[in-house]
């Protein structure tokens, strides 16, 4: 078995992985929470609010995550009391994810077939009750796959925090490569870390999707 020279960097990479994991967890949690909040606000706040959230979401989704990260980072005032880089990364990536989460929920709710709400009306449900008991549960099941997809995207996206100097997996990898010239081994190891996380999320998502499928 050939010796893997990059193994000596394993402790450093594991330390960087911890940052990536922490960043991912915060982004996914905040992104989901904010996305759900925006969906609820658009639903309850009337037409103008829905239109405004929709328009802002459209613009945010239209730009690259990296540009959004740069924008937030450079716009934040520098601070000595807390880690501005990490804050900028979490804020930018959470808002970016929320814009997609909002669109996924909006689309799923709009995609609930007319026949279902007709049937709910026909047994005497008010629109509000029909929304709570029929539209929402059906729409939520439709969102599992795209939400899992978006979660994987967000985790991969945390690699862009390296561009504003957050020391996580990608930045650690870049530093090592520029010192040691073992790009295939080092990047392979890093990619493997990302792969294991994303793959696990995708598998878990597929399991959830099977559980909530209408045939189950």
């Amino acid at each position: 078995m050939p010796e893997i020279a990059a193994l000596k960097y394993l402790p450093v990479l594991v330390a960087a992985l911890a940052t990536t994991a922490k960043l991912s967890a915060m982004v996914v949690a905040c992104g989901l929470a904010l996305g759900v909040t925006l969906t609820a606000a658009a639903h309850l706040g009337g037409k103008a609010v829905a239109l405004a959230i929709g328009a802002v979401g459209y613009v945010v989704r239209g730009m690259p995550l990296l540009v959004f990260v740069f924008g937030v980072y450079f716009a934040l005032p520098p601070s000595f009391t807390f880690d501005t880089k990490m804050l900028a990364a979490v804020v930018a990536m959470s808002v970016y994810m929320a814009a997609f989460v909002f669109e996924i929920f909006r689309g799923a709710i709009a995609g609930v077939p007319r026949g279902l709400t007709d049937a709910a009306s026909a047994i005497g449900m008010t629109p509000r009750l029909a929304f709570r008991r029929m539209v929402l549960p059906v729409a939520l099941r439709m969102t599992v796959a795209p939400i899992v997809n978006r979660t994987v995207m967000s985790i991969k996206g945390t690699s862009l925090a390296s561009a504003i100097g957050v020391w996580e997996l990608s930045l650690a990898g870049r530093e090592i490569i520029q010192r040691d010239l073992q790009p295939f081994q080092v990047l392979g190891m890093i990619a493997l870390f990302y792969f294991v996380i994303c793959w696990a999320v995708a598998l878990a998502g597929a399991a959830v999707e099977r559980r909530v499928s209408f045939e189950h």
């Binding site: 862009l160 870049r174 790009p183 990619a191 990302y194 793959w199």
Partner: peptide, 22 residues
């Protein structure tokens, strides 16, 4: 498909950028 869908594009660009000259 599984590998590249589940790893960041940044790493893949690095791989080509730093790796190919090697």
């Amino acid at each position: 498909v599984q590998w590249f869908r589940n790893t960041p594009p940044l790493i893949q660009i690095y791989l080509v950028y730093f790796g190919f000259p090697m």
